[in-house]
Simulated assay, not measured.
Amino acid sequence: MTWIVPDIDRIDTVPSGPERPMLQSWLDFHRQTLLAKCSGLDSAQLKRRAVAPSTLSLHGLVRHMAEVERGWLRITAAGQRLEYLYCSEANPSGDFDDIDAADPAADFGVYHREIQLADAGVAELPLDHRCRTPADAEFSLRWVYLHLIEEYARHNGHADLLREQIDGRTGD
């Protein structure tokens, strides 16, 4: 049986109130938007590339965002000592490039787990928490949230174009 990305209902964002729930709701909304762009597609459709020479695909975007979640929230913000999932110094674009033999169901499972672990890793940290990258740059957790929202928004635009190319479906 062919695995198909399940449908997803996106949450509403928090329109007012404390800052942390508003930031979290926008991050969750964009996470769910990426999944919504993939819903109903099979492995071949998820692996379909944009245009040569780009290696951009919906499957690659999900793998990339799993790396982003791990890198920014778990490694940089929470200070966890972890390796990256798909990328390395020798293969910096493995998240996008190495999808031909990759299993989308497994990679979507990894993405879901990374989100859960990322949220748990920063749940008790204040927004002013100082985060350090492996290259020793410093950011606040607030900045990291804003950066993730921006990165998802940009990649969701890519996902929208990829989905339209696959089956003509568009939407927000």
Results as ranks from 00 to 15, higher is better:
94 G>H: 10
45 Q>D: 03
148 L>R: 04
131 C>P: 10
88 S>E: 09
45 Q>M: 06
123 A>S: 14
126 P>R: 04
92 P>G: 09
120 A>L: 01
50 A>V: 02
41 L>N: 13
96 F>A: 14
142 R>S: 09
95 D>E: 09
153 A>K: 12
37 K>W: 02
121 G>R: 11
24 Q>W: 03
77 A>Q: 05
59 H>E: 00
144 V>F: 00
91 N>W: 02
74 R>S: 10
140 S>M: 02
123 A>N: 09
40 G>K: 05
53 P>A: 01
111 Y>K: 09
106 A>C: 06
136 D>M: 12
33 T>A: 11
55 T>S: 15
128 D>E: 12
129 H>F: 05
94 G>K: 13
116 Q>L: 07
22 M>T: 14
84 Y>M: 11
64 H>M: 03
49 R>A: 10
84 Y>W: 08
94 G>P: 14
93 S>H: 14
118 A>V: 06
26 W>C: 10
93 S>Q: 15
110 V>E: 13
150 E>D: 13
23 L>T: 06
49 R>M: 01
156 N>I: 06
46 L>Q: 07
117 L>F: 02
82 L>I: 06
39 S>R: 15
89 E>I: 09
126 P>I: 02
27 L>C: 10
148 L>W: 00
147 H>S: 05
102 A>F: 00
132 R>W: 00
106 A>D: 05
102 A>P: 04
59 H>R: 12
74 R>E: 00
132 R>T: 13
120 A>P: 06
78 A>I: 05
147 H>Q: 10
130 R>C: 11
53 P>H: 03
111 Y>F: 15
105 A>V: 07
143 W>A: 10
97 D>P: 13
30 H>E: 15
144 V>Q: 12
94 G>F: 04
131 C>T: 03
43 S>K: 15
95 D>Y: 13
72 W>M: 02
81 R>D: 09
134 P>Q: 05
38 C>M: 03
92 P>D: 07
35 L>F: 03
48 R>N: 08
83 E>K: 15
95 D>H: 15
122 V>Y: 00
69 E>Q: 11
125 L>V: 07
121 G>E: 02
90 A>C: 04
145 Y>D: 03
137 A>C: 07
64 H>E: 00
146 L>N: 12
26 W>N: 15
44 A>R: 15
129 H>Y: 05
79 G>Y: 01
146 L>T: 12
69 E>T: 08
23 L>R: 10
61 L>G: 07
59 H>N: 08
47 K>W: 00
27 L>R: 15
106 A>N: 13
44 A>P: 13
63 R>N: 12
80 Q>I: 01
54 S>H: 08
79 G>A: 01
33 T>I: 03
32 Q>C: 08
101 A>N: 12
65 M>N: 13
56 L>A: 13
143 W>C: 05
131 C>R: 06
71 G>M: 01
108 F>P: 08
78 A>S: 13
122 V>H: 07
135 A>S: 14
126 P>G: 08
124 E>V: 10
143 W>L: 06
42 D>Y: 02
